[in-house]
Design a protein around this nucleic acid. Structure first.
Lengths: 233, 233
DNA sequence: CGGGACTTTGATGTAACTCAAAAATTGTGG
DNA sequence: CCACAATTTTTGAGTTACATCAAAGTCCCG
């Protein structure tokens, strides 16, 4: 079968962090207006510059959000995972999508129409506040990213991104990062060339900070990477 | 007198973009809970890492928001101007301030206590929605900044920032940008060294794209700068 | 008029990009 | 399940945009 271990049953709004505090009444309205779907790797949900008619909740899988730059180069802004929402920004701001959303790991998603989002944010303070909270957290993440890109070296940024990927996506039972990215995707996260990522990963490996098997990465010396990344928090 | 042309009378919440659509009822609650003040250039309103007990509306003047990097280098995230709000993010996210706020042009500000903000966002959907709207717009700005830092050259970023400063802060009657920044501040906006900004401004001047008189900049060929910045929108 | 803060210029170093070509891996259709 | 194509990864060499350092010049502002 196509979607191993995935089922539309795994699709409870209760699992979405932003909406955990909503009353059961609010949740009911919500549940009535959303649709669930399975989406396979490679699928594009919406494209930068297009109108977007709803937003998404991720129940399983991973979605990549990116902008496309001058020469077609992707700039990855976020990997969205279980419990998170995306696509709401453009609806609230009444703008076309400012990113492209692509499935990078088979996913179970909820889709909520824009009209429902706008109606709820307009009339339901608890709901509006829940989305506001998410937006504020994302804003701080974005500010940190700006700081990193502006002031840190590529090596520091790569070290940091490995740490953050471990924190956000955790490791499997063999202690490998659960998210597997191509070298190019790593490069497009930190704003560098693919070759630079390759050379730096080789350097980290030589220093025994990490182990690498294809796209699987195991972090050996997290402390050293944190120090190298100049990441303190 | 200290504050030329500034008066606490110029302090109407109606002038704050985010709150223009609020009902007069909502506005009243608001007005009762805010305090106005005049703040002179150089004043620091809050510092990164400190708890913040309220947020601000700008009626006049300009406030610089920045993070401090590894070696004390400022990373400027935003210049806040008339009609805008700031400081709300940390309150909503229940975090300490993630930036430092410094007055760079004598200002008239409203200050609204955190408790009022939290109370209003919790109970008043219109208000919560207003703040949400601001946050979503800022999020898109931040995403664009990430893209620029990651993929554009210093020259492209400087060209872009000049265009944006003109759009955001406009020009005075002599056609100069109304916001006057040091070379260092320009550098800290686009993530480069002061010397690089100086050399590039000289280059732009030689090409007659701009005129420079100290910190006053006049944009002569906006089209050429836009083209150079690879900014299309 | 003097001193601190900015600005400018030049010289030099290097982190990181680009290009190119080979090696390895992954995916796919027969 | 294999063979072939396509993509991704790796390595090397050459280039460059930009940072850094140092020193001189300029602008204010009291």
């Amino acid at each position: 079968m196509k979607f191993k271990n995935l089922s539309l049953a795994d699709c409870s709004i209760k699992d979405i962090d932003a909406f955990k505090k909503l009353s059961s009444n609010d949740l009911t309205v919500f549940e009535q207006n959303r649709t669930c779907s399975l989406q396979s790797k490679g699928m594009i949900l919406y494209r930068e510059g297009n109108r977007i008619n709803g937003f998404y909740c991720v129940h399983k899988g991973i979605v990549k959000l990116f902008k496309t730059g001058v020469n077609g180069k992707e700039q990855i802004l976020k990997f969205v995972k279980k419990g998170e929402i995306f696509g709401y920004r453009s609806i609230i701001a009444r703008e076309v999508a400012c990113t492209t959303a692509k499935i990078v790991k088979d996913a179970v998603l909820s889709y909520i129409p824009a009209t429902t989002l706008l109606e709820l944010t307009k009339t339901n303070a608890a709901f509006s506040n829940a989305v506001l909270h998410v937006a504020c957290l994302e804003l701080e993440e974005a500010n940190k990213a700006i700081m990193n890109l502006a002031q840190k070296t590529v090596k520091e940024r790569l070290a940091e991104v490995l740490i953050l990927l471990k924190k956000d996506f955790e490791v499997d039972n063999t202690d490998h990062l659960q998210i597997t990215l191509t070298r190019e995707e790593l490069a497009n996260m930190i704003g560098t060339a693919t070759e630079s990522v390759i050379r730096l990963l080789a350097e980290f490996k030589a220093k025994e900070l990490i182990e690498v098997e294809g796209r699987k990465i195991r972090i050996l010396k997290e402390d050293a990477l944190i120090k190298m990344s100049k990441l303190y928090e």
